[in-house]
């Protein structure tokens, strides 16, 4: 346990460090370089939106943040701790699987296609990680799951299997499942783009509520309305680099870069 605690500490100074810091993050799949040096900072309590055309590397970057993908160059910190590595002297050491798993406990992730566990009911989906990973008692976890379902407006759906829920309901269960680990950071990868238009609102409402409660969120989205209303910072990515960043209001209404303008004229 102590080496795990150490692993999540890392090098940066405590307390005032940003929630996420990326410095020159590169990622390649074989010969194809998908991320070509991403630098950015996500502050505590901030809703940080990532937009950009398809294939620009948004999902890839998000997946690097919780080490579902290994980065090839650069540095990535979450809450001051290096993601996936440990710095000892001037050498980087890969973290063991269980140390990586330990880091991920604090980072919730919500996927475009929900990825609920189909063989478990909504409540069981939410209980799974607290019970297996945090060692909570089942009774405690069940209680917590019921509260979380209430919070996402699905208090009466706990016994349903994912196949018995609408897309919007599934996504809200997925959010509750991530929240059950009491993360300090939530990653959303286009959480509403697989949903029918009339179901999008419910999911965005839950996310808005979460933002109001002060959760730090990194959101890949095509919902410009949400970005403008709820976002505190926004980055436009294209071709594996950050093209433009700033406050969502500024970037969305007054883009500086031609590529940003071209993209926004298509989606707005």
């Amino acid at each position: 346990m102590t080496d795990m605690a150490k692993a999540s500490e890392g090098t940066a100074p405590a307390a005032d460090h940003p929630m996420v810091r990326a410095e020159g993050v590169h990622k390649s799949y074989g010969p194809v370089e998908v991320l070509k040096g991403i630098d950015l900072e996500v502050k505590r309590g901030e809703v940080f939106c990532l937009i950009g055309p398809s294939g620009s590397g948004k999902s890839t970057f998000l997946r690097c943040i919780n080490h579902l993908e290994k980065i090839n160059a650069g540095r990535l910190w979450v809450d001051g701790g290096l993601v996936g590595y440990q710095q000892r002297g001037d050498k980087l050491h890969e973290l063991k699987d269980r140390e990586v798993a330990f880091q991920r406990r604090d980072i919730g992730m919500v996927f475009q296609r929900f990825n609920l566990f189909p063989h478990m009911t909504a409540v069981e989906n939410i209980m799974e990680a607290p019970v297996r990973v945090k060692g909570r008692s089942k009774a405690e976890a069940r209680e917590q799951a019921a509260q979380l379902l209430e919070r996402v407006g699905l208090g009466d759906k706990g016994g349903n299997y994912p196949s018995q829920l609408s897309g919007g309901q599934q996504q809200r269960v997925a959010i509750a499942r991530a929240l059950a680990m009491e993360p300090k950071l939530m990653l959303f990868d286009e959480p509403t783009s697989a949903l029918d238009p009339e179901l999008v609102g419910d999911v965005l409402d839950v996310m808005r509520q979460l933002a109001e409660e002060g959760m730090t969120m990194v959101v890949v989205t095509h919902e410009m309305g949400f970005a403008r209303e709820v976002g505190d910072a926004l980055v436009f990515m294209d071709g594996g680099v950050v093209v433009e960043s700033g406050h969502p209001r500024d970037v969305l209404t007054n883009p500086q870069h031609d590529r940003t303008k071209a993209f926004l004229s298509k989606v707005l």
Binding site: D97, G108, M109, A129, V133, A174
Partner: peptide, 20 residues
Amino acid sequence: GQTEAAHALGMSRFQTMWRI
């Protein structure tokens, strides 16, 4: 996506295989 979701929740490889 199932494996990814389980890993993202902090489940170990064994737990992911066995439970999910």
